[in-house]
Design a binder for these strands. Sequence first.
DNA 1: GAAACGTGGAC
DNA 2: TGTCCAAGTTT
Length: 296
Amino acid sequence: MTLAEDAIAWYDANARDLPWRQPDTTPWGVLVSEVMLQQTPVVRVEPAWHAWMTRWPTPAALAADPPSEAIRMWGRLGYPRRAMRLHACAVAMVERHGGDVPSDLDQLLALPGVGTYTGRAVATFAYGQRHPVVDTNVRRVVSRAVEGKPDAGPATTAADLAAMEELLPASPAVAARASIAFMELGAIVCTARSPRCPSCPFEKVCAWRLDGSPPLEGPSRKRQTYAGTDRQVRGLLLEVLRHATGPVPQQRLDLVWTDEVQRARALSGLVEDGLVEPFGTASFVLAGDSFEVQTL
DNA sequence: GAAACGTGGAC
DNA sequence: TGTCCAAGTTT
């Protein structure tokens, strides 16, 4: 048995029943799920995906609404630029591809918000093509099982794709199955913390396991703390704008953060990013919001 | 290639 | 309680 075959057998018996994996899911549904899942856990994506697909069953439906509605619908999934790019992506698909999600990898990669992972994921899972699909789960599984390292180092796209290519069966359909199986394995068994090795189909062949599961050595790279960052301030500002039923006066936004310099920087950042627009002289709205001018 | 970019749950 | 982590992309 190859690693891919083991993984597929395990997947067939243990895969989660996720809505975007249903056979009747459209390529658009797959694309939406992939974008929502970028850095966001499955449990938070599921309800958001259902709501999104109900409101906008096609790219054309989303493209017909302003980006502000996409940003609102995104809610608290995080990284709201993804909502904006998904909207831009829908507009681009209407313009370039007649409202269809393209099946060609290069055309996918040319869309806003679609990078190396997402493009290959859609080409593979929505269209059944044969491409290595490498996300953080796959990188960790390959790193441990094949290379014997406790965890994947920094992403090296070309090398990561080549490593996964080595493990991929020849048949496109089976290769797609292998990719989703590796991802699922990394998500629920070969996890970053406390991997469930006794439940792993690779337990007897995993290079890391055979080496005694050595821990990661050296100090872990420091992560940026969230509290007090511009990101937090942007989040607070956007939260107010999402709930707005009209233009939000500057004075209202001033309440979310006391540091004026940082507050101004965060707001101008949101405007530069295209998430927020000035409205009149001293108010702001989500990009694309068109409120009636208030009359006294 | 590093840094920026949200949010919430688990340990 | 604070750190770590979650199907990445863009600049």
